[in-house]
Amino acid sequence: MTGSVPPRAPSVPAVPAGRVRCATFNVLHGLRLLEDGRAPGTEDAAGPAPLAEAVAALDADVLALQEVDRLQPRSGGVDQAAVAAAAMGAGHWRYASALHARALPGGGWVRDPAAPGLREYGPRSRNSPDGVPSHGIALLSRLPVRAWRARRLAAAPLAVPLRSAGRPGLTAVRDQPRAVLAAVLEGPAGPFTAVAVHLSFVPGWNVGQLLAVRRWIADLPRPCLLLGDFNLVGAVPRATLNAAERVRSRLPGAAPGRRGDAWRETARTPTYPSHRPLVQFDHVLASGIGADAVAGACAPRTAISDHRPLVADLALTRCAPCTPAAPARPTTG
């Protein structure tokens, strides 16, 4: 019914035995939306409970989050990555700030020129005296993490007309810097890599960012998962990555491609807008897994965000002969 709020907890099947549940969710800073996609009053959006309930219901082992707030008044002043990690029982997590700034009511940011563009936060920094509000992405894991990486992606130098949650028509929106997080995890069958991304909404610029991420993670172990809001529809991310791999393999002196290294989509289902999904911006792509590795996938409706989460249950066994990893930066808690 128009004006009502969706169910607080999504309906998600149980994780099949022997599978790792991997998910991505653009949480829109935990904002609760009405059944028809409109935003309610601000008083309904504050506080961590809706975010925690939505995350807990996914029952994910590995979860990438986008549009995450840290210490923002609009989301109750909480560390949303820490809230989500506690809700899903993830002992290993990182939050990476894309920008240090305070969100303004109605849109826009007041940036803090003294704060660095990229900073990582984790369990040990939960009670950090750093009180600068920020916005970014998070990668959360129930599985042990061997190493972490983070990097920043520059913003596109132009504004693009976009449809925003709770606003009629189109609004000219300037791009923001983006962050990327990568982790080498200890899976049931050995190490694998998970990479959390949130790419630009500017056409073409997001493709360049995706290719930059591909080069940045080339030395990390397979299987490798790319999870996030790509702002690229349908098969475009997979096709882009595989085309780049074909070009690389034809360069003089390049090593031949390895069986199982092609990028696969673990799910093809629309995720945006959440109240009536029409397109798929959110993806869980995998390289180094077999064709039968996906046991199931879904995109359930939650009470928060204009995106639906994308959930995939995977068998993360190595697809030989995939390359071992070069070491990443060791984790420090």
Rank of each mutant, 00 (worst) to 15 (best):
R215D: 15
R142E: 02
L310M: 08
P221L: 02
A189K: 03
W148A: 01
R258H: 13
L162W: 00
R276C: 05
G257I: 06
A87M: 02
P116A: 08
G169R: 00
G131F: 07
W205R: 12
V145M: 07
V132R: 11
T302N: 07
G117E: 09
P116T: 09
A159H: 02
A312C: 15
V202D: 01
P252A: 14
Q176S: 14
A156T: 00
F192L: 00
C224P: 05
G18F: 05
L210P: 07
P16Y: 04
R264D: 03
A23N: 07
R146F: 02
M1S: 13
W216R: 05
R149A: 10
S128I: 13
A82W: 03
S11P: 03
A96M: 13
G106W: 10
S249H: 12
R151M: 15
C224V: 08
L225T: 00
D282N: 04
A159E: 09
R8C: 09
A194G: 01
A98F: 01
V197I: 15
V284C: 03
D112I: 05
S287F: 14
A239S: 09
V284G: 08
A262S: 15
G108H: 03
A295Q: 15
S274A: 15
S305V: 08
A86E: 11
Q80V: 03
A98W: 02
T240H: 10
G76S: 01
A218I: 03
Q66N: 04
R258N: 06
A196W: 06
F281M: 03
P105N: 06
G89S: 07
V55T: 06
V311K: 06
R32N: 08
P116K: 03
A17L: 11
R268N: 11
P177V: 05
L58D: 08
A154P: 01
T331D: 14
H283G: 08
R163L: 00
V247A: 14
S4K: 12
P273C: 05
T193Q: 00
R38T: 14
A46H: 05
S249W: 13
R167Y: 06
T171N: 10
A150F: 04
R149T: 00
D61Q: 03
R149M: 01
L58I: 13
G91V: 08
A150C: 14
A179R: 01
V110L: 10
V20S: 02
P157A: 13
G91C: 07
A286C: 06
A243P: 02
P116G: 12
H100D: 15
L33C: 07
V311E: 10
S11I: 13
A86L: 05
L143D: 06
G136K: 04
R151T: 15
S141C: 04
R214G: 14
A154S: 04
